[in-house]
Design a protein around this nucleic acid. Structure first.
Lengths: 245, 245
DNA sequence: CTATTATACCGACCATCGGTCTATTCTCAA
DNA sequence: TTGAGAATAGACCGATGGTCGGTATAATAG
């Protein structure tokens, strides 16, 4: 193979891009390192120059997702015009939106992320996102408890429950996505929408505030995001060669 | 090796036993098939006579856990003396107890199940248990909604949240278990106990019933189970040979 | 008590995996 | 111009999950 030298950061991002595409389409376990380097058009030596292991690749991928998920959160935290409830709502909306949209950079990715074999990857992403967002969430809840807006004895616990909701939806969507037909898509969307409503109310009640106080996203939000993505599948990245496995 | 022929069901159970011990001590990924068959004193051919793949072994293991978790639930469902709340409490207590005690058949198993590398195994078990218990949970909640005891528009969603709680505890415990010292153990137990209290109240509020109505286990229950196990480590199963890896 | 078939089991073998290592080529500062 | 180090290639390695042809035992029939 001819030797091509690129800017290190570019190459690293390229590797991450191809890894993301392959992990999402085949799952972390089934997508082999050889597949990744083949897709990226790079030798093994080059790969191990950038990453110490395949596991590290997964980690880096999760971090990249998390970093994206955290973007913009600072503004919300600093906004003096927001009370605890407003701040919580804004953070939740931001977090959920960032997670969905990051994961759904292309429709194909979004669809495959919810396949059962991607549970590990999804969990990693969720964990990484939680790690970066959770402390802020705890702080906001604590503020709300202090000024009497919220009513709970365990802010960390509530934050965990909130972050957990993302994971809970995985099975719901995975099930409905199973066949991939339009009808099943509709079912999936409805189920997810309903589930979001329940999470909002659950959170309201856990925090001891009136039903409807928490708004993760407007009704129809899930459908809007998902159908928009579907209409515009955009670039899916690597043209992974078909294999029989 | 001399050929030993055993009753098929016995051999299958034996394989599951050794797989359970090894998966829990080394994690699903790190415990190789060769380790399992070596521990069971069986050839590769024999193993593949009983299971189509290593993955199937994990599946079968999860099912066995789930089956155990479901034991006794029938009595609760049939008991005419219980109202929806009582039934829900009984089922929750049963479910959680069964899960903890099944997983904790020996202290060592309990401790290792919460190691990060066992997340997949834990998730499988949780999923399998959910699949068998969840329908009953939904039915009970629905009964409660019908007779006005509970207040929710999405019984399946609530059931999912309930089953999700088990998964949420994994990270909490895993973190505190990290070092393995007595002090960290105490922290883990306290954290878990506090978390259980929160889940109870969260469930109360989600269902629109007074705080304290739901009882997953008495205060001190977690500590009782865990310290009891510790004092009596019992049989850990296969004497897996040390390896450096 | 044989003969036959079905089942339980063995272990050598295989492709592939993640990972290592040495050699080569490129870049760029001195 | 040169030399050090970064970037890349690809042959190679042990281990892994899985396959396959064969063998021993159990079950059944005659």
């Amino acid at each position: 193979m001819p030797r091509v030298i690129k800017h290190p950061e570019l190459r690293r991002e390229e590797l991450l891009d191809h890894a993301q595409a392959l992990f999402l389409t085949h799952g972390y376990d089934k997508a082999s390192l050889n597949d990744v380097i083949a897709a990226a058009g790079v030798s093994k030596g080059a790969f191990y120059h950038y990453f110490p292991s395949k596991e590290a690749l997964l980690e880096a991928l999760a971090e990249r997702f998390a970093k994206h998920a955290l973007a913009g959160v600072q503004d919300i935290l600093a906004d003096p015009a927001l009370d605890p409830l407003g701040r919580l709502n804004a953070l939740l909306a931001k977090s959920r939106q960032a997670k969905i949209e990051t994961a759904a950079e292309a429709w194909a990715l979004f669809e495959t992320l919810f396949r059962p074999e991607n549970l590990v990857l999804f969990h990693r992403i969720n964990l990484a996102a939680s790690a970066s967002i959770s402390p802020h969430l705890v702080e906001i809840i604590r503020q709300g408890v202090d000024d009497g807006t919220f009513r709970t004895f365990d802010p960390e616990g509530v934050a965990d429950i909130v972050m957990q909701f993302g994971l809970a939806t995985h099975d719901v969507i995975a099930k409905a996505f199973a066949s991939g037909t339009d009808a099943d898509m509709d079912i999936a969307i409805e189920a997810l929408e309903k589930r979001v409503r329940l999470y909002e109310i659950a959170l309201d009640r856990i925090l001891g505030i009136p039903d409807g106080s928490i708004r993760i996203g407007e009704p129809g939000y899930v459908r809007a995001v998902m159908t928009a993505r579907r209409a515009n599948p955009s670039a899916s990245g690597a043209a992974a060669s078909k294999k029989s496995r």
